[in-house]
Simulated scan of single mutants.
Amino acid sequence: MELKKHNNQFSQRINLLDQISDTQLAKEFIEMHEVKCTECQEDRLRCATRPACKDRNFLNTMIEIGVEPEDLPNFCYSQNLEQIRRYVLEKKGRKMIDRRLPIKDLLSTLGVSSIRHFSTKFKKEWSNFSQVQENNVLLVAGDTLLFRFDFHRGIVTVNPTKDRIHSYDVFKLYCKLFSTYYEVESNIRDLTSNWWILSILLKDVDTANLRALQKSELAGAFEAIYYKEIDDKAQIDVEVIRNDSSTPLEAEHLQELFLKVSKLKK
């Protein structure tokens, strides 16, 4: 476990005070967690079942900032890999969300040799298999699983519920994926750089449930949700406006929206 040499990577992500202060905070934080990790891994049963950092969040953080696997807490990381393997391949264990891994380690853990092999294998095994790619980002969904591959950083996120959607390209990518996965017809437009419209077309809509969706807590994640009749279809328009004061739009908001809309069909 060699974490101290990654102080600067962590301080750059903190970005709270100033460079000197953030560097010192990062150094102290990592030093404290190195002690915590050492003690946790000495009790292997505890580390395997009830790690000292909830949901292995410290390990997740270190992977997120780019710490190489050889510098991570070894036993903790091995347990993380095994839990993800069992969850993905055997559908065992608690649901995992927002778990990061180096792409090469995920592929190795799942017994596949490449992204193409990953797609080919699980397209045959998972229901509603869907995938979309834009530049260096690949999204894959199937069964109840979702993966976000970031090829630029070499990191994959398993079930990225809290992935914040700051750009139209990422918004469009998630919409395309969920449109295919939930089998609903949709299109996406960017009216301005921070004002986007998602339009979904449905036949035989339950209007009472649609009105309930408009008043739901989920609707608060979007600027507006409204609909109009077009021939024998209902067009549901979802507005998104991104600015510094708005609540961050996350992947789970879009996924829940598509799930609920898919259930509006009579």
Rank of each mutant, 00 (worst) to 15 (best):
T144R: 11
P160S: 08
V137N: 09
I103V: 11
S113R: 10
R116E: 15
Q133H: 03
P160W: 14
T157K: 03
L101T: 03
T161G: 04
H166M: 11
W126R: 02
L145G: 07
S114C: 10
N128T: 05
N128W: 15
H117I: 01
S108P: 00
L106S: 04
H117E: 00
K124I: 07
R116I: 14
V170D: 07
T157M: 06
D169Y: 06
S130H: 05
L106H: 10
K104R: 10
F129N: 02
V158A: 04
I165D: 04
N159M: 10
D143E: 08
F149A: 03
A141S: 14
K123H: 03
V137P: 04
T161F: 14
L146R: 14
S130Q: 06
E125H: 07
F147V: 13
P160R: 02
Q133L: 10
I103R: 07
L146K: 12
E125R: 12
L145D: 08
P102S: 04
V112T: 03
L138Q: 12
S119C: 08
T120G: 02
Q131A: 09
F149G: 01
F151N: 15
S114Q: 07
V140S: 06
S119D: 13
F151A: 15
T120K: 10
S167A: 10
H152N: 11
T161M: 12
Q131H: 05
T144D: 14
E125Y: 04
V156G: 06
G154E: 05
D150Y: 09
S167Q: 12
Q131K: 08
H152M: 08
R148A: 08
V158P: 03
V137K: 12
R153E: 14
L106A: 05
S130Y: 08
T120R: 09
F151S: 15
F171L: 12
F129L: 05
T144N: 13
L107F: 00
L146Q: 13
D163E: 14
T144V: 13
L139S: 03
D105G: 08
I155P: 06
L145P: 05
K121V: 13
D143Q: 05
V137F: 00
L145C: 06
V112E: 02
H152I: 02
I103H: 13
T161Y: 15
K162T: 10
L101M: 15
N135R: 14
L138H: 00
L145E: 09
S114M: 11
I115C: 06
I115S: 12
Q133P: 07
L106K: 03
K121P: 01
L139D: 04
K162Q: 11
I155W: 01
G154N: 09
L110C: 11
A141N: 07
N159R: 15
R148M: 07
L107M: 12
H117F: 15
Q131L: 11
F149S: 00
K123R: 13
S113P: 02
V156R: 08
G154A: 10
F147L: 15
V140T: 06
S119H: 13
R148H: 10
D143V: 01
G142F: 13
S127R: 14
L138Y: 02
I155T: 07
L145Q: 09
Q131N: 13
V137T: 13
T157H: 02
E125Q: 12
F171C: 06
H117G: 04
F149C: 02
F171H: 03
V156C: 09
F118W: 01
F171A: 06
V170M: 12
S119E: 14
